[in-house]
């Protein structure tokens, strides 16, 4: 269909679950759609006009675009400040680490992952951290490697190490993490209010 005949585009989120039935679900009173899935297969979700991505974390919020842009702006600012700190400062990171972190962050942004918390334990790496209900995810990014760690309060569940040069897109890393983080039952949940239909005038 030619877009020149369309002057209004509405954005609508929807999810595709494996073995989906024809059941139509209504949102809860605050506008959330909740669907529990007992399948171990990947769940595919499409939100707004973004490309299809694989849901990695069952409880990492799907944040809306403007909030995501703001979060990643703040992340970039923080990383830049850490590069400019004096030598010997506990939060200082080296320039090659900054470059690698920005590369990874860009990929995370493109796949619409929520921005991570960050910390470091020396100038030669930065750690991206997401806290999950059952376990936390840590990406340790150095100048040439990424180490992914999934850890619960009880034990380290999984560790995967990548070379930066081997990972063309961070989404591949996240997909690998998903395959490693096997759970017999996953709950897929869209968080946040269903937005008003957004009118985009073309």
């Amino acid at each position: 269909m030619s877009l020149r005949w369309v002057n209004t585009v509405y954005l609508q989120p929807f999810a595709v679950l494996p073995g989906a039935s024809t059941e139509v679900q209504s949102p809860d009173p605050v506008g959330n759609y909740v669907k529990e899935s007992n399948s171990s297969e990947p769940v595919t979700a499409i939100v707004s006009s973004s490309p299809i991505f694989t849901n990695i974390f069952s409880n990492v919020p799907v944040v809306w675009e403007s909030e995501l842009v703001r979060e990643y702006h703040e992340l970039g600012d923080a990383l830049g400040q850490m590069t400019e700190l004096d030598e010997g400062n506990a939060w200082k990171i080296e320039k090659p680490v900054f470059d690698a972190a920005c590369f990874v962050a860009a990929g995370l942004f493109l796949t619409e992952q929520s921005a991570p918390r960050i910390f470091n334990h020396g100038p030669q790496s930065i750690v991206f951290n997401w806290e999950r209900k059952k376990a936390n995810l840590y990406l340790t990014i150095s100048a040439d490697t990424i180490s992914a760690l999934i850890s619960s309060p009880e034990r380290v569940q999984r560790r995967i190490d990548f070379s930066i040069s081997d990972t063309s897109r961070p989404a591949l890393l996240l997909s690998a993490l998903q395959s490693a983080n096997l759970e017999p039952t996953r709950h897929f949940r869209l968080r946040g209010n269903v937005p008003e239909l957004v009118e985009v005038v073309g």
Partner: peptide, 17 residues
């Protein structure tokens, strides 16, 4: 045998946990 920075993270995480 593994990237040291990742191992450091794992150690610090386990101690904090």
């Amino acid at each position: 045998k593994l990237p040291i920075e990742g191992t450091k993270t794992a150690i610090l995480v386990r101690l904090w946990e």
